[in-house]
């Protein structure tokens, strides 16, 4: 009798496990994380491993790195696409997007390689797109939390959000957060042609232009010395503004 009981309870457990696996598979189906990476060998392995552990499908676009980014990302469990030469973060993102759309992705999450984003924020972002029906879910560190940012960076980020909102016409709390979830159908309208860092502003402009629905989702950003060194400064943002307007003056979407 004891043996039967044990077998039964084992079967029940197994059934529950299978069900969980099936549910999470259904939930994760068609969900892809795209990570542009340029010389991120130090961090990208940990970032990818975290995401893969959660059962996410990850594609890293190695943007012509001179270090071991490609090998590290691959051994951590990501699919790696490699640009033979450095083309910029915007270009790398679009390459990753092209790839996952070819894999019949339904929701695409963009994620940074430097470890400043938290994988735990992904479910809320994806749910905003999948369950609430938003075309785009934009991460906002000002609605969520920001660790390790000094006053200078906070002011700089607020200022760039102010400028970006004037350009795009969207009233955002955080305009340049790299973690977002975008539906596949929206991605067909949001083609990134800004190869450099101006792609973030281009994305927002295109969202407004195509009247896509969007929602900001609180996220947590952790700045480390490593990610701070990789971040943008004032001179670079002037360059980004130049790219934005130059592209726009040529009749392209900025």
């Amino acid at each position: 009798m004891g043996a039967v009981k044990q077998t039964l309870s084992l079967a029940v457990e197994q059934h529950a496990r299978d069900r969980l696996a099936r549910e999470s598979e259904a939930q994760l189906h068609g969900m892809w994380v795209v990570i542009p990476a340029y010389n991120e060998g130090k961090m990208v392995g940990e970032v990818v491993a975290n995401l893969v552990t959660l059962g996410l499908q990850v594609v890293v676009v190695d943007d012509g790195s001179a270090d071991n980014t490609q090998a590290v990302a691959k051994s951590a469990g990501a699919i790696v696409l490699r640009h033979v030469t450095n083309r910029g973060q915007g270009a790398a993102l679009q390459t990753g997007i092209d790839f996952v759309l070819g894999q019949k992705a339904s929701v695409v999450v963009t994620f940074d390689a430097d470890g400043q984003h938290s994988a735990e924020d992904i479910p809320a972002l994806v749910a905003t797109v999948r369950d609430e029906g938003a075309d785009v879910a934009l991460g906002s560190r000002f609605l969520g939390k920001m660790h390790g940012a000094g006053l200078g960076r906070t002011i700089f980020l607020r200022l760039s959000t102010f400028v970006s909102n004037r350009l795009s016409g969207l009233p955002l709390t955080d305009s340049h957060c790299g973690i977002r979830a975008i539906s596949a159908s929206a991605l067909r309208d949001l083609r990134i042609t800004q190869d450099g860092m101006a792609h973030a502003s281009q994305l927002l402009y295109s969202i407004a232009r195509h009247r896509l629905s969007w929602k900001e989702v609180p996220v947590t950003i952790r700045y480390t010395e490593y990610s701070r060194a990789k971040g943008q400064n004032v001179t670079q943002s002037l360059r980004i503004l130049f790219d934005y307007f130059f592209h726009r003056s040529r009749g392209g979407q900025p």
């Binding site: 696409l81 083309r87 092209d98 042609t193």
Partner: peptide
């Protein structure tokens, strides 16, 4: 030319994979 080059690099990355 830059954006043409990006297209080529992208195509190459996808093909290589």
């Amino acid at each position: 030319l830059q954006s043409e080059m990006t297209k080529v690099v992208r195509e190459l990355a996808l093909l290589q994979h």
